[in-house]
């Protein structure tokens, strides 16, 4: 038990530290703490580039989440419903991206998007994030589909519904909680991702890329302020996703 507490303390120490120091008046954090201040939030949020990055992050996260959820759902449904040759290769193709180190994804994406003429644009970041987040969406949708009785869809067909109709009025409603939670999780993944975004972003930076660039400068408590803000945003998304998953378990 004590051991468990120590391990958890280690895992959470940096998260809690950054929250505490985001309200601490001393520039160079020491013990004992200085006074309580919201100064770092004020400076961070008075910078136009932070706002711009916020906007970029939001656009990228929402678009990438939409695309990767759609892609993930289609793939999960294919895996659930059909059997075909090379299916295991198909599934491997779908799940492979997270195993490639981020730095390598960044390099490959940069080179490829530069060839297509869209490196340095938000479109480029959206594409990269969709590739990286889609496997998570697929996993979540697949889990939900495996709880669905195959007879349900068949029953709709027997009652004269077309495949499309059955999809619209049976499969999608059944999977809706999973689809929403996949959307939230992939948005959170994209909102947090900085390595690939850093490689391909150019001047259109997202929030984590701005953090990275501040970090390359000096000790700066603004990072704690922005980081705490990003943390709260992501956590809201994750908690919403988690609530949807647990609610569907009870249902």
């Amino acid at each position: 038990m004590l051991y468990l507490a120590i391990v958890f303390a280690f895992v959470f120490a940096p998260i809690i530290t950054s929250m505490i120091f985001s309200f601490n008046s001393d520039r160079f954090p020491t013990v004992p703490l200085g006074e309580f201040t919201t100064h770092w939030y004020e400076t961070a949020f008075s910078r136009p580039e932070v706002w711009e990055a916020m906007q970029n992050s939001l656009i990228v996260a929402l678009t990438a989440a939409t695309l990767s959820t759609a892609l993930g759902f289609a793939t999960a449904y294919t895996d659930y419903r059909y059997n075909f040759r090379f299916k295991s290769a198909y599934i491997a193709l779908a799940l492979l991206p997270p195993t490639i180190p981020l730095v390598i994804m960044g390099l490959a994406m940069l080179a490829w998007l530069a060839r297509l003429g869209i490196s340095g644009t938000l479109t480029g970041i959206i594409i990269a994030h969709t590739v990286m987040a889609a496997p998570f969406a697929m996993a979540i949708c697949r889990l939900r589909l495996s709880q669905m009785d195959p007879a349900l869809e068949a029953a709709a067909w027997n009652l004269g519904a077309s495949q499309w109709r059955a999809m619209r009025s049976v499969v999608v409603p059944f999977c809706l909680p999973a689809i929403v939670s996949a959307f939230c999780l992939t948005a959170a993944v994209s909102f947090d991702e900085f390595v690939v975004a850093w490689f391909v972003s150019g001047l259109n930076k997202t929030v984590p890329v701005v953090i990275l660039e501040i970090l390359q400068g000096n000790v700066d408590p603004q990072i704690n302020a922005i980081g705490t803000f990003v943390f709260l945003t992501s956590m809201t998304l994750v908690v919403v996703a988690q609530l949807l998953i647990t609610r569907r378990r009870k249902a």
Partner: peptide, 25 residues
């Protein structure tokens, strides 16, 4: 344990930089 996945890894590393510093906590 899932929570850390959704906190910026960069910010966590920055926090360690502060914690482990020679004059740090």
């Amino acid at each position: 344990l899932v929570v850390p996945f959704f906190t910026s890894y960069l910010v966590r590393i920055y926090a360690w930089q502060v914690l482990l510093a020679e004059s740090g906590p």
